[in-house]
Design a protein around this nucleic acid. Sequence first.
DNA 1: ACATTAACGGAGA
DNA 2: TCTCCGTTAATGT
Length: 226
Amino acid sequence: MSQKLCNECILHTDSEICLRNQGLESLHNHCSKVKFNPGETIFKENAINAGVVYLKSGLVKIHTCTQAKDRILRLTKAPSYLCLPSSLGASVNRFTATALEPTEACFIELSTFRQLIVENGDFAYQIITALSQREMNNFHVSLNLGQKQANGRVADALLYLANDIYENDSFVIPFSRQELGDWIGVTRESISRILAEFNATGIIRQEGREISILNKELLEQISEKG
DNA sequence: ACATTAACGGAGA
DNA sequence: TCTCCGTTAATGT
């Protein structure tokens, strides 16, 4: 991996920042790229932090496996930093990250990342902006789970996958019904029932894990009304 | 309105 | 074979 590639992708940057990082040892000496297949764990909760992880490509779930029940907190799509609050805020991972699709991840030494933040205000600003957006997204998720009924949550999840993850109204759900339930707090039986209901009323077309949203307006209404 | 439980067939290891 | 997955139906809160 060349330094130019790192600067373009990890720093999201322009030549200005590159110039300011002349003093920094080339980034690729502090960075390694790893490929993961679906189902492979990128980092595990209760393990010592391996540093900061940047997602170059792919899709990952952040989840926690304590007390026998899996709980999915969020999906993270590349390009993005993977669960920074867990990496920066604690010496031990508080969550597990598992690839859902073929994924490339770059591991960056924490000291290197810290140096980039300290020396590049605009890079730091980008990070803060990204964290702020996630915070707002968390509010939405909280509202979704707190005051919506199951069909509203399922509708929300489908809209999220279509709008934010795949940017297409037809997509393949990247995990099982069980995991979908773990994500939005609904049992897998209810997921089955609700998807079958949506399918029967013509809101979606469902075939296994393949989903096509046919009536987006109605789906949005269901999501709003809960 | 949902969860829970049970039961079934199918897929995959 | 055993285990996970998706689905349906009956029953309980």
